[in-house]
Amino acid sequence: MSTDPFVLEVNGQSHEVADAHPGESLLRVLRERLGLPGSKNACEEGECGSCTVLVDGQTVCSCLVLASTAAGRKITTIEGISGDDGLSHVQEAFVDAGAVQCGFCTPGLIVSIGSLLESDPDPSDLAVREAISGNLCRCTGYGRVLEAVHLAATRRGGST
């Protein structure tokens, strides 16, 4: 049993999804059918944030989006965050601040923080903590993640 074909627009490209199971999440479709494994699959209940993507510019847990209902929306995954000119400010700051250990939570954090900086270019620590409250990291203790956010904010501010 499958759902009828639908088209997803991911990172500016249209993909036809022909044979998704009923109930298949956007995360599964991205990873298993569209060859975009950057969004990670851990809890499948919206708790860990490692599957965070942008749908119409808003962060959501892709594991909680019924894939067929995302047709017609603009989906951005971690693969669409870095441009042709290289890493995003947030990605570069993560590298420079050493905010990555095992790396599993990193794609979700990058998407969440990118979204935060769009609406709040110079966030307070409290704002950062709230913005990443749905992204679990079990390695870094978040200290270097916070450093990376402020580094990215500074560089972003400097580049505009």
Binding site: P22, S25, G46, C63, L64, L66, T69
Partner: peptide, 26 residues
């Protein structure tokens, strides 16, 4: 009936809710 999906999809992913016809409201 599917609204935001944040409760329903948890059950679907877990396999505790068999998904049939869906009406999405969003």
């Amino acid at each position: 009936v599917l609204a935001g999906g944040t409760d329903l999809m948890v059950e679907v992913n877990r396999g505790s809710r068999r998904i049939g016809n869906v009406v999405a409201l969003n």
